[in-house]
């Protein structure tokens, strides 16, 4: 956290997505009211074909990033994996499974499971590892999201449409492009239980008879948390924007930059309205966010911000020297994050 004590930048990026699907054509497969889902503003999302695991997508993205960087896995000093949905197995380390898939023999791995927040923690972890160890010069950061449809309805996912994808980035010490300048984050633990998956963990390994994770819309639990009081809920909505603005302000101060210098804000791939709310809280126009990309991609959990960063570069929407704020709100947590990148 805080301003970098080491200089590092992104050398290359790789992505791997599930099959692209139209929201209009498939929403009715998930919910009885597809019009409500369409109102979220998404046009498409990605769904991994049957049998395609998060580990497979993460490995595909990693291979592409390594190839673009001209690196062999043996030249990577650390692998950091953020996995934002339910892993393939409980009591299992997807980061080690990814390393095995990539043919690594001894590269240390780290697993980050803070849901949609994992991207920021992963970048911070890479910076920290480089600061702590001069031998750590190259880090492979991988973020993956493959929705477990047995646990979650991807069309009723915290007001967004959940999507399957992975992004991998090769980070190198002293790399002069796509430099990580600073970060900031805050957590409000009052909301630790919001959006949790109810069954399958140690507290409730199995759902009671007649119930299941998919039976109740997660938003109903959110309403219950606030006593179904519109004023309390409205305060929560306000807090989302206020805390986002606060972490962006802190990250900018740590980097010695101003909000007016931001060329683009890349938010998690939330609904059209949620991104508009974030833009308003940050005082930037919607067309300088990732709103359009979010509508095409769907919410890829922890992969959103780095996927969109790369897509904006590919489309020529970011130029050398541009200042970009990668931001997000993550639940459970809840956490608010900002990482500043200079292109």
């Amino acid at each position: 956290m805080g301003s970098s004590t080491v200089e590092l930048g992104i050398v290359s990026t790789g992505t791997a997505f599930g099959e692209r699907r139209s929201v209009a054509e498939t929403a009715a497969d998930y919910v009885p009211d597809p019009e409500a889902v369409l109102a979220l503003g998404y046009t498409s999302y990605h769904r991994a074909a049957g049998g395609t695991t998060a580990t497979r997508l993460a490995a595909d993205a990693s291979r592409e990033a390594l190839e673009m960087a001209g690196l062999d896995i043996g030249e990577v000093d650390l692998i950091v994996l953020g996995n934002s949905d339910v892993p393939e197995y409980l009591g299992w380390d997807p980061s080690a499974a990814l390393a095995r898939e990539l043919g690594s023999r001894e590269t240390p791995t780290v697993l980050l499971a803070q849901s949609c927040a994992a991207w920021s923690v992963a970048l911070d972890h890479a910076a920290g590892a480089m600061a702590l160890s001069p031998e750590t010069g190259t880090v492979l950061v991988v973020l993956v999201n493959v929705v477990s449809e047995a646990h979650t309805n991807r069309m009723e996912f915290n007001g967004s449409i959940a999507s399957d994808g992975a992004v991998a980035a090769v980070l190198r010490r002293d790399h002069p492009r796509l430099r990580r300048l600073s970060s900031a984050r805050t957590t409000n633990p009052e909301y630790a239980d919001l959006f949790r998956i109810e069954y399958g963990g140690a507290a409730a390994p199995l759902p009671p008879q007649g119930s299941a994770d998919l039976v109740v819309d997660p938003m109903a639990r959110v309403y219950r948390h606030f006593g179904r009081d519109p004023e309390r809920f409205q305060g929560f909505m306000r807090e989302i924007g206020d805390r986002l603005a606060a972490v962006v302000g802190t990250a900018l101060a740590r980097a010695g930059r101003e909000r007016g210098e931001l060329a683009r804000v890349i938010h998690l791939n939330d609904s059209r309205q949620a991104i508009a709310n974030a833009a308003e809280a940050l005082g930037i126009p919607l067309d300088r966010t990732n709103a359009r990309l979010a509508a095409e991609l769907g919410h890829m959990g922890a992969a959103d911000q780095l996927v969109c960063l790369w897509k904006h570069i590919e489309r020529g929407e970011l130029a050398k020297g541009d200042l970009v704020a990668l931001v997000g709100v993550a639940a459970p947590g809840m956490h608010w994050f900002c990482t500043l990148i200079e292109i």
Binding site: A36, M219, A220
Partner: peptide, 11 residues
Amino acid sequence: PDADLAGRNFR
């Protein structure tokens, strides 16, 4: 009931 607090019921 909580389960009825879904968008489809308020469209």
